[in-house]
Design a protein around this nucleic acid. Structure first.
Lengths: 338, 338
DNA sequence: TTGAAAGCGATACCAC
DNA sequence: GTGGTATCGCTTTCAA
């Protein structure tokens, strides 16, 4: 077994051709069938693997799309990333994935590192970014798409929905069902803007339907967990014992709250309604099943991919990339818990 | 706003120094404080970002660690990746993440693409790989660690546990609790080796405790979902109505089975015991809580990171990397469902 | 269809 | 501490 990594020059020499011919074979450009055979055979025999850095440096074209998500353990973001990955992989690109941990400062650091690879596109989550982040993005002229939210003025492109409106629709649902003393539980962090938007939607709903003062418990970090949900629900009952419905920032906390009801012998939905957000699998299969707001994380990923690909194509031909906003549907799913 | 991306040469010219000095400032090597100030100022002013491809090509040192997992939506693998990421990030490396979708052929393709970036290390999940995969890994001499399993003869290093033994321990628990007609539900795929190992452990348990013939339902793809669990459980009851306990390939299917019990009015654990695997959050917070096998996905990721870092250091100094096997603990958690 | 030469943007190595 | 030069492995460009 040889001690060194063969290069394209080695393949060329062994096959008795020029490097360029090898390069063309790999890129599947015009080469005679016979030549292709010959070169491919040598490549296989030598176990040659191209060096991506050299290719990137030489061509000025990177194989990367950057995707930055707040958390990889949220199945919602995982789904979005999965679909984005499918979309870009089909075009020969690969994901460079980063986990910001819900921290814009961390997002900035990650982005700085990742822009060093001169990606063809960048997917961000949310619309809350540091000024340095925005400046880097502008300078680098890389196609950018913000997801899971639709900012008034996106950096460039965006695909998502209004978390405020979605939460408000859930309030409409609860109001229609006859609930009047509705609480809200969410995380304690200031950094999860989508969570905060949902709380804003809750407050709008209270006003809109004349439901009195907010009953808000902020408890636990991001992402919100089942145990946070149970604890927050207990705090909610401590503060406002006559609460008859709880709207949760996510299905995870809703499930936690629901289990706390079980434990306390509170009947759902008779004595207490529980609403979630996100249509996670658990909310569909638990008992009673949890009413929630369904969005399509896969659609967000797929559309983000299309937008980025379009942006990359535009940039290649020297054009200004499109600056588009797209909305995806959300839907209140009435299930057993309300 | 300038139209081009500034290079190190631009920074050097603007600062009136050589490229090497700029390079040293960025690498934080010996440069006088005054010089550093001056160069840093120019870097900021120009918005200069280094080009990673050029650096990699020139230094022969890549910033990447490759991590290949069967599925990103499984919280177990997500946790492992998270800890691996933390471990390598601390050493200035970044993850190149791939999703094999439980398919060794796909793993091979992904690996081929990723080895083009000349990573400093590769984390694989499981011990089932194509021969081409193994050949590529050998040739490239990159540090490799297989996770979530401990093969008899690892490619190089490994960290995990015996899924067979772990499942068998769960059988011991069920037997001790008095259950005698125990079924097993898992996915229908041949590709999820860890799932198959757990089934093997189940069969071993049957023999060991004299519990008669296997009652196995294989249903649904990978990763197994809650709905698969509910459906598989129904099939199990159809086939063997007198079953008094079900051991599930994962907590996801266990939860699905548990909810199906709710629906059918089957009391858990009185009429039916339900056991899971993996200690997912839902198994801890649902009612009744699900007995499961706990492993520490974070420890696997952390240790894998350490192993890879050690391997990379060894390779740098021309040494043969260690070929170590490490086991992580697993523990049967007896909860309410058994 | 194939080949030769000139870079791409950084770092290693050796002078000073 | 700092600077010059060769070089990493590939693709672009242009010529044959």
């Amino acid at each position: 077994m040889s001690e060194f990594m063969p290069t394209m020059a080695d393949v060329a020499r062994e096959a008795g051709v020029s490097k360029m011919t090898v390069s063309r074979v790999l890129a599947d450009r015009d080469v005679s069938a016979a030549m292709r055979e010959r070169v491919l055979a040598v490549i296989k025999q030598l176990g040659y693997l191209p060096d991506a850095s050299a290719g990137t440096l030489s061509s000025g074209r990177s194989p990367f799309i950057v995707a930055l998500v707040p958390s990889m353990s949220s199945s919602n973001f995982a789904d979005t990333v999965h679909s984005l990955n499918a979309a870009v992989t089909a075009h020969g690109l690969q994901l460079l994935l980063g986990d910001t941990d819900y921290d814009p400062k961390r997002e900035e650091q990650l982005l700085r590192v990742m822009l060093a690879h001169r990606p063809e596109g960048v997917m961000l989550t949310g619309s809350f970014h540091t000024v340095a982040t925005q400046a880097m993005l502008k300078r680098s002229k890389v196609p950018v798409v913000e997801t899971w939210d639709v900012p008034r003025t996106p950096i460039q492109q965006a695909v998502g929905f209004s978390n405020v409106d979605a939460a408000c629709e859930m309030m409409r649902h609860l109001h229609e069902r006859g609930y009047r003393r509705i609480g809200f539980i969410g995380g304690a962090t200031r950094l999860d803007r989508r969570g905060l938007d949902r709380q804003t939607g809750y407050r709008q709903g209270l006003k809109l339907f004349g439901l009195g003062e907010p009953r808000v418990i902020q408890h636990g970090g991001s992402p919100v967990t089942m145990s946070h949900g149970g604890e927050a629900f207990s705090l909610l009952l401590d503060a406002w014992p006559d609460t008859d419905a709880v709207m949760c920032v996510s299905d995870m906390s809703a499930f936690g709250a629901l289990m706390e009801c079980h434990r306390r012998g509170i009947s759902v939905p008779n004595q207490m309604a529980v609403a979630g957000f996100g249509d996670f699998e658990v909310s569909r299969y638990c008992y009673p099943s949890i009413s929630t707001v369904a969005v399509d994380p896969h659609a967000i990923g797929r559309i983000a991919g299309e937008m980025l690909l379009a942006g990359a194509a535009a940039r290649k031909s020297g054009m200004q990339g499109p600056s588009e906003k797209r909305r995806v549907e959300f839907r209140v799913l009435a299930r057993q818990s309300t």
